[in-house]
Design a protein around this nucleic acid. Structure first.
Lengths: 213, 213
DNA sequence: GTCTATAGCTGGATAGAC
DNA sequence: GTCTATCCAGCTATAGAC
């Protein structure tokens, strides 16, 4: 090799920080105009470079979305992993739910990029996606401490939280019409799981089959 | 007037059916490639006309989306308004939930157009939107028959159903991983509302304030 | 109402000099 | 790595003949 390792580190650090600066500008842009407002021309202008320069740091526009996804997923994982104040398992679950919902509603564009599939033909790479899946394990952990281990209950949990977030961002952006229901929703959910039989969902009578196409 | 009324009806009928044929083609296109795949060139090709002809029937691309929205909203209202088999109020609510979720999951593009805001700068007109709001009144009606009248419970209900739909279409399209939880979700919800005090959500202890930014 | 032809714009991506 | 200049594709929408 013709370079010392410190020279290599220097250059790689500069390259990394230039990439991060571009991503900063990308997020600014997206926060103002939504995910679809990201264009390479506008991004280059904000980052103080020209379009071809962007291709020195990213292979394509999708690669930029992927890097943005990776940053969002890391933020998500870090926020969820922050320590909780000591409390009983039920209050812990409420805190966890608050964090999840607050994380999602505090940045709608980030939420859409992470959890909805709104960009045509974009799929996050496995590396970018990894932190997000690790975080789902955390949810299972907190549910488990409440004695909730049934897979269908985990699914019901994700549906409940996701529904609150979705209604909040779609119908009352910036407000708290649905986020203020979190505690009640968790109470409802926990009470149900504690009373439900472990194997089958409770059914008092057969459902209206005629309506289930 | 120089035309008889029957001549006028004739022409208006022809015009209406031509519009409907274009909308049929638009829905075919969208079902195959998603909402964003609608382009006027492709639409014209499928409808057997050329691009300028589309402008003889619609003022703009957004006007086409609006007409599609109107049709979807009407389908939604009609499906929800179909009579239910006689049953008790609880089973009625389950049937209602099944219909809502099945309607949404059976046509993802239609669901996205109706309930998510994924098309840039598109807002449905008041006329197109009207059937959808009327249908929300139906949900309140069925909840009311179960003694559920609190506004916050109505919000919790919409979040719960919307969450099931969202998880289903996002993470298990074509499957039933979340739709099969409908009955259990309704049971949980109804039991909670019956036991909850009418004015305030139940809280055994104060929440972890440190986590509520 | 329907066509041919095209305007006018915006987008992602690249060639090649420096 | 960064620039100037440009290509090429896609889109909505319109002008004007028939």
């Amino acid at each position: 090799m013709s370079k010392t390792s410190s020279e290599t580190d220097w250059r790689e650090d500069r390259r990394r920080s230039a990439r991060e600066a571009i991503l900063d500008a990308a997020w600014d842009l997206v926060h103002e105009g939504g995910l679809a407002a990201l264009t390479l021309r506008e991004l280059a202008g904000r980052a103080g470079v020209t379009t071809p320069t962007l291709y020195a740091y990213f292979d394509s526009k999708h690669a930029i979305y992927d890097a943005m996804f990776g940053r969002a997923a890391t933020e998500f994982a870090e926020r969820i992993a922050e320590p909780y104040e000591p409390s009983d398992s039920s209050a812990l679950l409420v805190s966890h739910a608050h964090r999840f919902v607050e994380f999602c509603t505090s940045d709608v564009a980030r939420y859409q990029l992470l959890f909805q599939r709104t960009i045509p033909d974009f799929e996050p790479s496995a590396e970018s996606y990894a932190p997000a899946v690790r975080t789902l394990e955390a949810a299972r952990e907190y549910l488990g401490r409440n004695g909730i281990t049934e897979p269908r209950h985990v699914d019901l949990w994700t549906a409940l939280l996701n529904g609150l977030v979705d209604q909040q961002v779609a119908n009352d952006p910036g407000g708290d019409r649905w986020t203020r229901l979190i505690e009640e929703a968790v109470t409802m959910f926990v009470a149900h799981c504690r009373s439900a039989p472990p194997d089958r969902p409770p059914r008092s009578k057969s459902p209206n089959k005629g309506d289930q196409r």
